[in-house]
Amino acid sequence: MILEYFEDRFGIPKAHFSEYQLYQGHKGKYYLGPKTIDRPQVISPGLLIARAEKQVKPTSNFLQLFGHLATKNILELSKPDAKRYIEGYDLRIEANADPGYVIVSYSGNFLGCAFLKDGLMTNNLPKAKRQQVKYL
């Protein structure tokens, strides 16, 4: 369901992940990891790619890694807006994307996840990832 969602929402082909296995963790967390784990007491089995409680929310780490495979719902920012996004701000924006989760990009770089509704782009970067960027 998660990989199908990525294909449907962003055009990221499900087949691209055939070398890996999807794992469901606590609190609706989904991981993409090695085919076999065969050991108990695992803290995390690969890359956290989404949280799915009421709806599927992709992680910024996943979109940074696989955003280049996407064909739709990509929001290209200007340089000043990209800086503000990385610092953690929400942005008022005129966007050519469907309402819902979008991939934020700047000059060919995939920065992370945001939620778009009524011209407001709500920042979904985790607080720990937000930072000041001087060079971009």
């Binding site: 890996y20 993409l32 990891g33 090695p34 784990i37 050991r39 007491q41 695992v42 803290i43 995390s44 089995p45 690969g46 890359l47 956290l48 992680t59 780490n61 940074q64 890694l65 720990a128 990832k129």
Partner: peptide, 18 residues
């Protein structure tokens, strides 16, 4: 460890605490 592995995009890595 988790933060750095996620940021690096490590898919093949299983974290244990033993």
């Amino acid at each position: 460890l988790q933060f750095n592995l996620q940021k690096a995009g490590a898919l093949n890595t299983i974290i244990t605490n033993q």
